[in-house]
Structures are given as structure tokens and as C-alpha cells.
Design a protein around this nucleic acid. Structure first.
Lengths: 151, 151
DNA sequence: CTCCTATAGTCACCCAAGTTGACCATAGGA
DNA sequence: TCCTATGGTCAACTTGGGTGACTATAGGAG
């Protein structure tokens, strides 16, 4: 029996965690919420992004990013505002509702990781995060690579 | 700066590895190859599966699995044969071409994991696999959970 | 044996979320 | 003042899933 490829384990792991996250968010009343939303909100936590920023870190076309932002704005998670220094651009500000999901998502991720810690121990969970960050940054010029809704 | 959620790291990791795999398979002449193909072939390595088996471990409807198999058969990676004991079912046998991609995919995954080992060391790569298998099995009744093309 | 229900598979149609290509407005340097 | 690059959007299309309806066979209850 050959080793299970890491790629497969990662696909399973992310699928499992994202599914659990969305089950719980749904249970807390956050509906019409696509999986990608949480990642966009997490990314815009530290200040507003532009549509192009989103296209880049989601590794999608700017058209697709624009549609994603449409959906997020319509569901009241983001607000498009004019960019103060560039009349072409728009800044995507997280809304109050957006902040609430974001907090819920972070809390639920912490809970899910705590469940993992009960199985393999907190040290090994930390090691997973540390090792993945290290290897991903090392192979992508010191920064984390883009994330994708699909492969 | 809060911790990067593991879910995000897993999504990035699987995206990166699967993308690299397909770049290299493409370079070796395997075209018209969807990401899901490699997982189906790996799963059918130890003997033919039925369409329902595929639907189950890919966590998709049997209709979608049927279309996936259509595509794989059309691209000559699988062959549908009648089931010897159940006239309703068909067994999906891996073809010669299928075996070749499978070997290529396994070899490339080994190479990619070796690149990771050069960054974080072989021990920590092994630890990743061990820990993920342990936690995934523990939370899914002793078996690995299904894999999904998207989340 | 005869039903009756469960299961394997497929067909037709639909939908979500991406892509490509064309386009407009503004930025910003030569 | 152009001329090119960039941020964003609209429209049309593609892909890969889902849903619902259906057929054929399996397999147990009576």
C-alpha cells in the first residue's frame, strides 16, 4: 500500500473543515454564505482591499472577483466605496454583518482546531500550522500562495 | 495578527500541489486531464470500482460520477465492463493509459513531497501525513473522508 | 413464484461560478 | 498631450456540478 499523497489529505482536510465551518455558520443564522466569503473577509480584516487584490489572492480573473464582490455586497457582507486616491478603484469595506461572520468564523475555526488537538494534541496541531506556513512561504517567495475555491 | 486558519493552509496546499502535478502531467503529454481524474485512478488502483463507489468517495451524486466516468472513459483512462455478479452494475477498469498516468502522478507526488522535505525535512513531512491521517480517520469512523473537487 | 422495495446506472434539463473578450474611465510617465 | 497601463464592469459562453424522471436488475417477504 503506497503512501496516501499529501495532496489528497489536504483536499480532504480543507473540505472537512470548510464544510463543518459552514454547517455551524448556517446554524448561527448566516445563510447565503459561499465558502469563498470567509476567506475574503479574513483577508480584508486588516483594512479594505480592492477588487484586484481579491482577484490576485483568490487567483481568479478580476471579472470573477467582481462577481464575487457583487454577491458579497448583495448579502451585506461588504460595501463598495470609492477609493480616496484613485478614482478608478473601489475599496471594499467590511460591513457590521461582515464583522460578525468573521468573528464567528474565527471562533469556529478555533473550536474545530481544538477538536483536532483533542485527537493529536495541541503540539502537533501547532506543528501542522508552522510547517505548512514555512513550506508554503519558502516555495512562494516568502508569501502565502493564493487560495482557490476549487482546484 | 491572529493565526492563519488551518483550513486556509490546507486549501492553499492542496491547490499548490494539485496545480504542480497537473503542470507536470501536462508536460509529459497527459492532456484533457481533470484534477479529479488522478484521485479516481488512485482509488481504483487496487481493483475496479463501480460508479457508486466513485460517487461515494468523491461525495457527489451518482449522476455527476457517471459524467466523470464518461469523461475518463472518453479520454481512455477507464473502461466500463459489465459486473460479473450484478447485471445492473458496471465495473470501471483502469486502462493501460490510466496506469501510465497513475504511475506518473505517484512519481510526481513523490517528487513534490521531496521538495517539501528539502524545506522542512523528511521527518516533518512524514509527521504531516501521519497526523492528518490520524485526525481524519479519528473524526470519520476510522476511514478517510471523501474528497471533493471544490468545497 | 409473485410482489415490492432498494439499488446501479443513465438521460434531460438546470444552475452556479468560473472564463474570455470588449469596453470605459482614470492614472501616470514620456 | 499622448499613449500605455490599470481598475472595474458588461455580455456571452463553458464547465462541472445538481435535480428529477426513468429503466433494469436484485433480493427479501409473503
Amino acid at each position: 500500500m503506497a503512501k496516501v499523497p499529501l495532496a489528497r489529505l489536504f483536499a480532504m482536510s480543507s473540505y472537512v473543515l470548510v464544510s463543518r465551518l459552514h454547517e455551524r455558520l448556517e446554524a448561527e443564522g448566516f445563510r447565503e454564505l459561499r465558502p469563498a466569503f470567509a476567506f475574503v473577509l479574513l483577508a480584508s480584516r486588516d483594512g479594505p482591499l480592492t477588487g484586484n487584490d481579491i482577484a490576485r489572492f483568490m487567483d481568479m480573473t478580476k471579472q470573477a472577483a467582481s462577481k464575487l464582490v457583487d454577491a458579497m455586497e448583495q448579502a451585506n457582507y461588504l460595501v463598495r466605496k470609492p477609493h480616496p486616491e484613485d478614482a478608478r478603484a473601489k475599496l471594499l469595506h467590511i460591513s457590521a454583518k461582515g464583522k460578525r461572520v468573521l468573528e464567528a468564523a474565527e471562533r469556529i475555526y478555533v473550536e474545530l482546531e481544538a477538536e483536532w488537538a483533542r485527537v493529536i494534541g495541541a503540539a502537533r496541531v501547532s506543528a501542522l500550522r508552522r510547517d505548512l506556513i514555512e513550506v508554503l512561504e519558502a516555495t512562494h517567495g516568502g508569501k502565502l500562495p493564493p487560495i482557490r475555491p476549487a482546484w
